[in-house]
């Protein structure tokens, strides 16, 4: 809540300061409820599974997740965790998900670079061999890695959701360069390409990413309607998990630690009262 408040305050200031100073602006992020909010919030495992599917079938065409291993998908709290397989490397579902992906390796006999199906111990394969190649294929700028994207932007998953669902037709008077797209949630300064009143420069900026999602682009196995909003929400949840895979463990641990500290404090308070009872101070 605190973070959200600070974020909103920051955006509020950015908004009011915007027109006068022609600085970076951004529309207020969409308010969306997440299962993992609050002190007891947990990730919704089925949502993470859907989110992984969206990442795998849509995002991974351009965006790497270099910090992720397939085994992460089957670890405790992960989208495909199964209590039957405490070692995620043995989880058959994770194995088969990894098997579908080809990763680069070195032939042990010849030393030649080869492709082989991934195992749970492998990293997610990056879509491009290097950053230059990624930039060259994407209008001159490499798509950012998504491993910690939910921690790397103000608003986190709400930002991701807002961007993904935020593509709108640019208002008349706004010139958008070819190969770029208008998105009010993408921080930017549009005063230079705006021909209307300088007091009403549209919020947001131009983003290099074309609208990635479309209705029914991903088939959800659990009958969840495959709308853009659902795809965006689920992939944002998946990225939130990927950025903080130990969040559930952290909150659970914190609850125990807090109960301990509160009891300890109460005991110390009574000890204090008892020890000091005969001292006027």
């Amino acid at each position: 809540m605190l973070r959200k408040g600070l974020t909103l305050a920051a955006f509020g200031l950015a908004l009011v300061a915007g027109p006068a100073m022609a600085a970076t602006t951004q529309a207020e992020l969409k308010d969306i409820h997440w299962s993992f909010e609050g002190p007891f919030g947990k990730f919704d495992q089925v949502q993470l599974q859907r989110g992984y599917k969206v990442y795998r079938e849509v995002c991974s065409a351009c965006h790497s997740m270099n910090l992720m291993y397939f085994r992460n998908l089957g670890q405790k709290g992960g989208p495909f965790y199964d209590p039957k397989y405490p070692n995620p490397n043995e989880n058959p579902y994770v194995k088969s998900l990894a098997h579908d992906i080809q990763v680069g390796d070195i032939d042990q006999d010849t030393g030649d670079p080869v492709k082989r199906p991934a195992t749970p111990a492998d990293k997610f394969a990056a879509p491009f061999p290097n950053e230059v190649a990624a930039a060259a294929s994407n209008g001159g700028k490499a798509p950012p890695d998504l491993s910690v994207m939910a921690k790397a932007r103000e608003g986190g998953p709400a930002y991701i959701y807002s961007i993904l669902t935020g593509f709108v037709t640019p208002p008349a008077g706004l010139t958008i360069p070819a190969g770029k797209y208008y998105n009010p949630y993408f921080p930017g300064d549009l005063s230079g390409s705006w021909t209307g009143s300088p007091d009403h420069v549209p919020q947001g900026g131009v983003i290099g990413m074309p609208p990635p999602l479309a209705p029914n682009k991903v088939t959800f196995d659990d009958k969840t309607p495959s709308t853009v909003a659902n795809q965006a929400r689920d992939v944002a949840a998946f990225l939130a998990w990927a950025a903080e895979p130990k969040m559930e463990e952290r909150k659970q641990f914190g609850l125990g630690a807090m109960i301990y500290l509160v009891i300890f404090s109460v005991l110390l308070w009574f000890s204090y009262r008892r020890i000091w009872r005969n001292v006027a101070h």
């Binding site: 500290l261 300890f264 404090s265 110390l268 308070w269 000890s271 204090y272 020890i275 000091w276």
Partner: peptide, 8 residues
């Protein structure tokens, strides 16, 4: 004990 309480 007083510091201990405050620390806690």
């Amino acid at each position: 004990v007083k510091d201990g309480f405050a620390i806690s």
